[in-house]
C-alpha cells in the first residue's frame, strides 16, 4: 500500500462526513415505521367464547370474503374437525377449535390474527411490507414480500401462514381484519355472519368497557380477565371466556411489547450511525499508527 498519510486522513475524514450525513437522514425514516402513534379510534373485535356454539359459519364466510374456495355451508356443521387442534393456514384464515373448559364442559374459540398494537411482524419484516393501520388492522403488501418468513418466526401467536406448496409466487397469508370490507363500512365477514353474536366489532376501548360490563353482570360465567387487553402490549382482538385462555388456547405472554427488546438493541447498535463510524475511525487509527511504527523501524 503506497498511501501517504495525508491522503489517508483525507479519505477517512470524507467517509466520516458522508456517514454523518447519512445518519442525519435515517433516524426519521426509522421512526416513521414504528407504531407508536396508535389511533384512539382503532377498532377491534370482542370474542366471547362462552357464547360461541362452534357452527364454524365464520370460517365459511371468511373464505368467501378472501376468494378461497369455501364449498357448502352445511358441511361446516360437521363436528369431526374438533377432534384435532387446528391452526389457521393459507386456505383458512380463521378456525374454530373446541377445548375443555373449567367445569369439563366443552367450549369453542375462534382463532385468527390478533392484530397486535405493537406487532412483532411489522417490526421484523425485512422490507417493511407489513403495517399497522389506523383502524387497527395489521395488513401487508404482497408485492413487496420476498418470502423470507421472518414474520412467522417473530409472531408470538404463530399466525402468518405461508404457501409452501407453491413454487412460484408463494404468499404470506393471514387474517387482514377484512380491511376492504370495513373500509366500505361493512362488518368483517366473520362478525357479520355470526348467528349468536359471539363476535362484537367496535372501537377497542368500547369493547374493553363492554367486556367489563359482562364480567360484572355475569361474574360466575367468566374468568375475569380480558386476554389481549395488556398481553404483549395489547391486541385488537380481545377474548373473554370461562377460564384462563393463556397457557391453553394462547401461549403465556407477558405485557411487554413483542418487538421492544429487539428494536432497542437494533437502534442502540446503530444510534445515529455513531457506533459503526466510531469503530471505523478506531480501526483506521490503529492501521495508521502501526503503519507509522513500521516505517520508522524500517528506517
Amino acid at each position: 500500500m503506497s498511501q501517504n498519510r495525508r491522503d489517508f486522513l483525507k479519505t477517512v475524514a470524507a467517509i466520516g462526513t458522508s456517514a454523518g450525513a447519512l445518519s442525519a437522514l435515517s433516524p426519521n425514516k426509522v421512526k416513521a415505521k414504528s407504531p407508536e402513534n396508535l389511533s384512539e379510534e382503532r377498532m377491534g373485535v370482542l370474542v366471547d367464547a362462552t357464547v360461541c356454539i362452534g357452527c364454524r359459519k365464520c370460517e365459511w364466510a371468511c373464505r368467501g370474503a378472501h376468494d378461497i374456495e369455501n364449498g357448502n355451508i352445511q358441511d361446516y356443521a360437521d363436528e369431526k374437525v374438533f377432534e384435532t387442534n387446528r391452526r389457521p393456514d393459507y386456505d383458512n384464515l380463521t378456525i374454530v377449535n373446541r377445548y375443555e373448559s373449567s367445569d369439563e364442559k366443552l367450549s369453542n374459540v375462534k382463532l385468527q390474527c390478533m392484530h397486535c398494537d405493537h406487532p412483532a411482524c411489522v417490526s421484523a419484516c425485512i422490507v417493511g411490507a407489513i403495517s399497522k393501520k389506523k383502524n387497527g388492522s395489521v395488513v401487508w403488501d404482497t408485492d413487496m414480500c420476498i418470502g423470507c418468513r421472518y414474520c412467522m418466526v417473530a409472531c408470538p401467536f404463530q399466525i402468518p401462514a405461508f404457501e409452501y406448496h407453491k413454487a412460484l409466487d408463494p404468499k404470506i397469508v393471514k387474517c387482514d381484519f377484512c380491511d376492504e370490507r370495513t373500509m366500505e363500512g361493512k362488518l368483517p365477514a366473520c362478525t357479520a355472519i355470526c348467528p349468536v353474536e359471539a363476535l362484537t366489532y367496535g372501537k377497542r376501548e368500547d369493547l374493553l368497557i363492554e367486556a367489563k360490563r359482562r364480567f360484572k353482570n355475569n361474574p360466575d360465567r367468566y374468568y375475569q380477565h380480558i386476554f389481549g387487553e395488556h398481553e404483549i402490549g395489547g391486541t385488537s382482538w380481545l377474548y373473554i371466556a370461562d377460564k384462563d385462555l393463556a397457557g391453553t388456547v394462547f401461549p403465556k405472554l407477558d405485557n411487554r411489547t413483542a418487538p421492544g427488546v429487539s428494536e432497542s438493541i437494533q437502534h442502540g447498535l446503530f444510534a445515529y450511525f455513531v457506533p459503526p463510524v466510531a469503530v471505523y475511525a478506531l480501526l483506521g487509527g490503529i492501521m495508521w499508527l502501526t503503519k507509522d511504527k513500521k516505517k520508522t523501524e524500517g528506517k
Partner: peptide, 29 residues
C-alpha cells in the same frame, strides 16, 4: 442459501430499495 430459502427469491433485491430500520434481518441483509 438465502436466495434458495426465500419463497419469492426473485425479489431478493427488494431490501435495497425497501427499508425497514427496525428489522434485524434488514440490517443483516
Amino acid at each position: 442459501s438465502v436466495m434458495v430459502d426465500l419463497g419469492r427469491w426473485y425479489y431478493i433485491w427488494h431490501p435495497i430499495i425497501m427499508w425497514n430500520g427496525n428489522s434485524a434481518l434488514f440490517e443483516v441483509g
